[in-house]
Simulated scan of single mutants.
Amino acid sequence: MSSPLTLEAKSPIQEAIRNLTHDAGALYAPAILEQLRSMRGKDPAAFARLRAQAKETKQLSMSEFDRLTASSNDDSPPDSGIFVEVEPWPEEVDGADLLDDITHALARHVIADKETLRAATLWATFTWLVDMVQVAPIANITAPEKRCGKSILLTALGKLANRPLQVSNIAPAALFRSIELWAPTLLIDEVDAFLAAHEDARGILNAGFTRDSAVVIRCVGDDHIPTPFNVWGAKALCGIGKIADTLADRSVPLRLRRRIPGENVESLRHSDPAFWERLRSRLARFALDSAEAIGKARPTPITGLNDRANDAWEPLLAIADLVGEHWPT
């Protein structure tokens, strides 16, 4: 017997979504809102699918949609306070110009060679397309010593990434639950100390590299029922020295160095929040327009790299190839 919340093709809600192109208030009619609030509380999966449909129309402010569809006793996961809703840029975005602007923005705050800055730019862009690819490379921010700007680069990536969750310490049980619950871009600082204290977290991070293998099983509840948790998603690690070989094997290295006399950077803390907001908005629009092409992309492997290293670079190369100009080189 089908659920009473299952949407028929000609249901009032589906009809309202189709009408959004010429009636921006179609989903906010009182009867429709009541159905949406009921669905959000009783069938979160159906509500999430419907929300994605509404978002694809690009006719709504999704923060307003979330506010209006929330009931007074809504007990859904409180991620609205963790992640800021990003409104896509209203016009089509030139991909090469966007990536150039991101690279220049990073260069204002971090000392690194051009290749590292370009790799960081491609990785930040990949976080907006993670649902379209089959491999999720880890961004491995590393340096041989302290005060090389590692945490600054991690924070800058957090200002660019989709659904960023930046932490310095997280228990393994919270790690896989957070990924399953929120599907964040996970940004872990002080990873050398973190993994030393939580060796079992390495297996969770390893598992999230490919979509097919991104599941860990843990026993849950008083009856210790084996339960699968999805750990697929983008992750960045920041620390001093080398990380474990299994993690490095699944990573794109972002190597930093100390400033030399005459090199200067701007304070990231004092940067204009609106500047980063505009970049995120452009990234969101680029991802919407490019998702299908990235999903179908099969970039040429890099000569000299092993198979797993080429796997790690695959989504980044797909983005570079798509935007063209000087980026594929």
Rank of each mutant, 00 (worst) to 15 (best):
S2C: 00
P4C: 05
L5P: 01
L7D: 00
E8N: 14
A9T: 13
K10N: 13
P12Y: 05
I17T: 15
L20H: 13
H22K: 14
D23M: 06
A24V: 12
A26N: 13
E34P: 07
Q35A: 15
M39E: 10
K42W: 00
F47Q: 07
Q53S: 08
A54N: 01
K58C: 04
Q59K: 09
E64C: 01
D66G: 03
L68V: 13
T69R: 05
A70M: 09
S71P: 01
S72P: 01
D75R: 15
I82D: 07
V86N: 04
E87S: 09
P88D: 03
A96D: 06
L98D: 04
L98C: 10
D101P: 04
H104R: 07
A105I: 03
A107Q: 12
I111H: 12
D113G: 12
D113C: 02
K114Q: 07
E115V: 08
L117T: 05
A119C: 03
A120C: 00
L122R: 05
W123K: 02
A124L: 03
L129W: 01
N140F: 09
I141D: 10
K146D: 10
A156E: 12
P164W: 09
L165T: 05
Q166V: 05
Q166E: 10
S168I: 07
I170E: 11
I170T: 02
A171P: 00
A171I: 06
A173S: 11
S178C: 11
I179G: 05
E180S: 13
E180A: 15
W182T: 14
W182E: 06
D189S: 15
L195S: 07
A197I: 01
E199N: 07
E199T: 06
D200C: 02
D212G: 02
I217Y: 15
C219F: 03
V220I: 13
V220H: 08
D222T: 12
D222H: 07
H224C: 05
P226N: 01
V231M: 08
W232G: 05
G241W: 08
I243L: 09
D245V: 02
D245F: 00
A248C: 02
D249T: 10
R250S: 01
L254Y: 05
L256G: 07
R258N: 12
E263S: 03
P273D: 09
A274R: 10
R280F: 05
R280S: 10
S281I: 02
A284C: 13
A287M: 01
E292D: 06
A293G: 01
T303D: 15
G304P: 13
E314T: 14
P315G: 03
P315S: 06
L316E: 04
L317H: 09
L317M: 12
A318H: 03
G324S: 00
G324Q: 04
W327E: 06
P328R: 03
T329G: 14
